[in-house]
Design a protein around this nucleic acid. Structure first.
Lengths: 225, 225
DNA sequence: CGATCAATTGAGCCGTCTCAATTTGGGTGG
DNA sequence: CCACCCAAATTGAGACGGCTCAATTGATCG
């Protein structure tokens, strides 16, 4: 039930077998519907098995901020463990499936499988780092760099999933990309057009072909030195 | 050794007593010096007992982003638990003191004090939420709102520490505030001057007196509806 | 009492947003 | 199957917020 997908990254095989006890439920989330809402009781975290989702927070004025786009193998719900209340919405960008990792189950198994706590800790720390990197991007990079870095980030994640790093489909709209990166949808669109015009990539609707990965890295400012 | 400061927030008294085993070391960090560097081995998290610090990350190009200003009672080092390597610098804004919470000690005590893991989990989730809120601010608020919200945030934290919420000293420079908020130091300075000119607060160097807290909340967009 | 660094304030510019028009594609019903 | 409709995306023109560069003041410390 876990395959290599859900939580394990870097765990020994026998530990993974034991962990199967942890996963008793899977949930299908159809495109556009929510896995959980801000304000819901949070009793679990979720491992994305297939599809993709976005998570977004909403403030008192209704302003929203997308905090992440999730691909298979990634975990969501880590931000809801403070008071066991979800502080974000999780919305499917396409028909998706998650496995449910209940926290009470986790605590029950923890004495027998100590690595479980360590693993969760690592994942949460990773999420903190991811947010901090995003802060760096929003705080000090210009639009061009943000969009380039965004594409590269997707590219790398697709690659580590075994998909092509240079040809993929954006499951999110220009507006969602803009919201995520702190830009308007028009700016995102213009930049994609410009990148295409400069021969760095091809864009047809939501289909992206990266032609010159190195040029993109230079734009993003992540190539070397 | 813990007082009520280090990790406990919301723990039963007897559990706190047991937790004292956890804290075997304190570290003094003098103004301007670092508690840890990016790249250091990370074997602990730190509870701030007194003083204040900033944490900042640095990318390959040397660009830095301050990810947080820490006040007493708050925890740092949560971002270094992924591979046990620090991914940020922690630098003291004034002479400070932290207590060291070793992770191996924590894991050793975990079976006897199960609430320990829960507590760490909550703190990490809180840090994720804090970053996400910051993302919302950097992504969709204008400079005026960011600075107002920044002051209000400090105000609330000082208040919950038992200090005045309307009179406090900024331990960080305008440049550091600007970096944190994704603004230039000039913009921060101008806004503080403007707030002062509008009678919302008084600023003398790093000394802030908030005169009209409600007006500040309106500016920040966090007062109501 | 000078030296140095932090902060303030001003002027002008640039990047991104806003507003608006147009194109494109996908889905639906006649 | 075609025509229509709606949402998403593209592209343009103009405005504005925050940045850059620069000069000045103020504080701190030897």
């Amino acid at each position: 039930m876990l395959n290599t997908i859900c939580l394990p990254l870097g765990m020994a095989r026998d530990e993974i077998v034991k962990m199967d006890e942890l996963i008793k439920e899977r949930i299908r989330v159809s495109k556009g519907s929510t896995l959980y809402h801000q304000g819901d009781i949070s009793e679990a975290v979720y491992g994305l098995r297939s599809g993709s989702l976005k998570t977004q927070i909403q403030d008192a004025q209704g302003q929203t901020q997308i905090t992440g786009f999730l691909l298979p193998g990634e975990i969501l719900g880590l931000d809801g463990l403070m008071d066991n209340i979800q502080v974000s919405h999780a919305i499917a960008l396409e028909d998706s499936e998650v496995c449910v990792i209940r926290l009470d189950e986790m605590d029950r198994l923890a004495p027998r499988i100590p690595v479980l706590q360590t693993q969760l800790r690592r994942l949460m720390s990773k999420e903190i780092n991811r947010s901090h990197s995003l802060l760096l991007a929003l705080g000090s990079r210009r639009s061009e760099q943000r969009v380039a870095a965004f594409l590269l980030n997707l590219s790398q994640r697709f690659q580590s999933l075994g998909y092509s790093p240079t040809a993929f489909i954006l499951r999110m709209s220009r507006e969602e990309i803009g919201n995520f990166l702190g830009l308007t949808l028009e700016t995102v669109s213009r930049l994609l057009s410009r990148f295409a015009h400069d021969g760095i990539l091809q864009v047809r609707h939501r289909e992206v072909h990266i032609l010159d990965l190195h040029a993109l890295q230079v734009l993003a400012g992540t190539d070397c030195e």
